[in-house]
């Protein structure tokens, strides 16, 4: 994570931050002795620290599952999305415009719960066990997702070769910030996060279909998320912010 937007002794901050983070590192897969499950339920649905990354895991898993025609893995991806609250935002970037609504339905970089369940049903092809699992998610999704959402997902944008999209978003001091792009395939969609003086904080070249930048703002302020298509083909993406 990059500490950004002011001069500060980075090494000292790094140690303080590491102490704070590590002390509360709740991922504790190894916390259960003998590989056991942690005894206390540390539900992540309401744990903001994981929301955006959980959504990215679900997208990665969903793509892998569709490629392998693995219905059970699609169900697992759908369960993550169902349990992870997020809000939709209607930001339109400078230099960009939303993909046409009808066209957007054809290829969605960010798969929603409905998209996942539809694909799972199609691939399940009448398998009763799988259909039961799929129906369970559909019925239980409201119960799975709980807690406040600090993660937002934009609409779909098309970015032609050479084009640059710029989003301006405020972020709060001391709150870890994450921006991620989910493209409709591997390509050359580069994402740069810059502060209000246009100083680059993080760049992800976006050679995979998912790019991610995280940083820790030291001051309240506006940050620029710059999405650039440096390839030869048009690309389509959603932006996720936390």
């Amino acid at each position: 994570m990059t500490v950004a937007n002011a001069m500060f002794p980075r090494s000292r901050l790094f140690v303080l931050l590491a102490l704070a983070l590590a002390a509360g590192f709740p991922d504790g897969a190894g916390a259960g002795s003998d590989g056991g499950v942690p005894s206390s339920a540390s539900t992540s649905a309401g744990d903001e620290r994981y929301q955006l990354d959980d959504l990215l895991v679900a997208q990665d898993l969903f793509r892998l599952a569709v490629r392998n025609r693995d219905v059970l893995a699609i169900v697992a991806a759908a369960r993550i999305v169902a349990a992870t609250p997020f809000t939709r935002i209607e930001d339109v970037p400078e230099g960009g415009y939303a993909a046409p609504a009808g066209d957007a339905a054809a290829a969605k970089p960010f798969a929603t719960l409905e998209d996942m369940l539809a694909d799972a049903r199609r691939l399940a092809a009448g398998n009763a066990t799988m259909l039961t699992l799929i129906d369970d998610i559909g019925e239980g999704s409201a119960a799975l997702a709980r807690g406040a959402s600090a993660t937002s997902v934009t609409g779909i944008f098309d970015v032609p070769p050479g084009a640059v999209h710029v989003f301006r978003r405020p972020f709060r001091a001391g709150t870890p910030a994450v921006a991620a792009i989910v493209a409709d395939g591997p390509g050359v969609l580069e994402m740069t996060v810059a502060d209000d003086r246009d100083r680059a904080i993080c760049t992800d070249e976006g050679t995979a279909s998912i790019g991610r930048c995280s940083w820790l703002p030291l001051l309240d302020g506006e940050f620029l998320i710059i999405v650039r298509n440096t390839g030869m083909s048009p690309l389509r993406y959603n932006l996720l912010l936390h």
Partner: peptide
């Protein structure tokens, strides 16, 4: 990542798929 999510959320299906 899926295994970690499954353990955090006590979701057996996620662990099976992982």
């Amino acid at each position: 990542d899926l295994a970690a999510w499954g353990r955090r959320n006590r979701d057996p299906l996620a662990l099976i798929v992982a």
